[in-house]
Design a protein around this nucleic acid. Structure first.
Length: 277
DNA sequence: CCAGTATCCTGCAGGC
DNA sequence: TGCCTGCAGGATACTG
């Protein structure tokens, strides 16, 4: 059983669910206790900035969500690897590890839940966005049409394994361990091949596969989303057909060779020794 | 500047 | 059955 972590497609699907379920609602009250997360959570400060204000359309940059409020400023949320944003009835019991609760004007609550606390939620005043260290360092969006032209030369200039490079958010924003493995398998490139030793042609192919797999996953999420009468945040967690991730020891879907399992930069990496070179 | 590794956290799987 | 260990991974601080 593979647990799907929030990478770009999952975050985008959450964004779309919130666009449907959150825009136009007012925040009547913010609740939560201070807790150490990837960045410290300060519910009182967040409350001072957003209580009494109305949600505008949410945005996404890489894996970061920007929940904008009318009149300026955003609640920036990163889901880490176990984070969820849930829209639920106030009557329902809250899940364990609910760190932040926003009471909404329709009687529901927006809940930020994150057992492993690799995620965070922080307030950004207007103008903070430009200088925020997480956002300002981000590389190109994978769905940007300029991807095929911009990124290959940058990858070609690096020594690291291609897999490490496409996981580097400063180069390309939004890919995690799952879609990295899937993209490389689709492109027929060994995950441990160094950027320097990969032709521009093959790197361009990789960029196409990155875009395709992410777009397919977003489309799947969109399908999931339409199935929910009331978007509840869980809509962001779906399963696409994963060809290699979590399938070490199983036959390659293309050639039948046994999928190999290795570690690159400390991360589990599955690949086909026959198809990827 | 660049590459590689340690670190944070909880839940769960596997071994004995 | 129950305890222990290790792994899962995103971003970033740190080391060489």
């Amino acid at each position: 059983m593979v647990t799907v972590m929030p990478e770009l497609p999952e975050v985008e699907t959450v964004r779309r669910a919130l666009e449907i379920g959150l825009v136009g609602l007012d925040v009547s009250r913010v609740r939560g206790r201070p807790v150490m997360m990837r960045r410290p959570l300060d519910p009182s400060f967040i409350a001072s900035r957003i209580e009494g204000r109305r949600f505008a359309a949410p945005r996404r940059r890489g894996k970061f969500l920007l929940l904008d409020l009318d009149g300026g400023g955003s609640l920036m949320v990163h889901l880490g690897m176990s984070g969820k944003l849930l829209l639920g009835d106030a009557e329902e019991p809250r899940p364990n590890h609910t760190h932040l609760v926003l009471d909404l004007s329709d009687g529901r609550e927006l809940r930020f839940v994150d057992p492993r606390r690799f995620g965070f939620a922080v307030w950004l005043d207007p103008g903070d966005e430009r200088s925020d260290p997480s956002l300002s360092a981000l590389g190109i969006e994978p769905l940007d049409p300029a991807l095929e032209d911009c990124l290959p030369p940058l990858l070609k200039a690096r020594r690291s394994p291609v897999k490490s490079l496409i996981l580097d958010q400063r180069l390309i924003a939004g890919i995690g361990n799952i879609y990295a493995a899937e993209s490389l398998w689709r492109a027929g490139i060994r995950p441990d091949r160094h950027g320097r030793r990969t032709s521009i042609t093959r790197l361009r192919r990789l960029m196409r596969e990155v875009r395709t797999v992410l777009q397919e996953a977003i489309d799947q999420g969109g399908t999931t989303l339409r199935d929910y009468a009331t978007p509840d945040g869980n809509a962001g967690y779906f399963k696409v057909k994963l060809n290699v991730y979590g399938r070490e020891g199983e036959p390659c879907p293309t050639c039948g060779a046994v999928l190999k399992d290795t570690r690159i930069a400390g991360r589990a990496t599955v690949w086909c020794p026959q198809c990827q070179h």
